[in-house]
Amino acid sequence: MRPILLSGHERALTQVKYSRDGDIIFSVSKDHVICAWFSINGERLGTYHGHQGALWTVDVDPSTTLLASGGADNTIRLWEVKTGRLLKTWDFPTAIKRVEFSPDGRRLLGVTEKRMGYLGTIVVFDIILEVDADQTNEPSLRIECTESKATVAGFSYVGKYIIAGHEDGTVSQYDAKTAEQYLNLTVHEPDIPITDLQWSADRTYFITASKDKTAKLVSAVDLEVLKTYVTDTPLNSAAITPVKDFVILGGGQAAMDVTTTSARQGKFEARFYHKIFEEEIGRVRGHFGPLNYVAVHPEGTGYCSGGEDGYVRVHHFDKAYFDFLYEVEREQAKI
């Protein structure tokens, strides 16, 4: 497996995302620029300019026409994927930590930071999936997180619930239409923030990553913890692979702690765990800083990771990855 190294960013990567067809990778970093890359050969399609601050998050709608991004300049911006044209800017009092389109692309969710007397909120905008449409100015839904601010959020299957991960290690389930909170459960260690939340292909369950060094597979219906993956390093990201029953975890010693810890070796790797047996099956090294985000190709043929070192590494899995089976799985396949 020869990874493709994308070095278009000048500062630490914060998020990388595949388009629905997996052909384009969008990456955002703290250098204010969004990049679009073809996943097949690493060719850069273009860059999106306009943000005035570090970018924290990016998402693309399922038809790959609109791109949403949010960052430390307190705006969510909507872009035309094809040309890099800025279509719409929504202003907020605080930074945007996460944006995500609903599965049908008609709604856009944004998570705002808690700061300067403002509570952390989750806002939802109705989106018209056309480039030249006049997008709404006001959010259709607003959830205030009074207890603990949300760090990550996303839409469950058919956009029924909004699931949010919080700074205090809890996960909440809201109704995506009425904003009513149904559940709030402590999934991770109390008071240790959840750093990532990514969905399975059908969005009935998701994986959360936390600084408490674990990742958990959680059901979207009742927030029941299905599986737990224990590692030896704080995690920044976790993703579920389609085709094979694996999960990929990324993390590493926080950049600010690297110089004060001796055991830095071997922490900046993507860790592969078996999704069902909760057992580590391998690691992929390469980054020389913590991994800030891992994203999996929607067809399960590869993955890419964005690191604190400013590089995106795009991996296409080889045969050994697809051939690997546990003894019991092989037995099962024979029957």
Partner: peptide, 14 residues
């Protein structure tokens, strides 16, 4: 902006 990194051997194993 784009380069190919060194080969990585990734063999998942129980």
């Amino acid at each position: 902006t784009t380069s190919v990194a060194e080969n990585i051997v990734f063999r998942p194993m129980a």
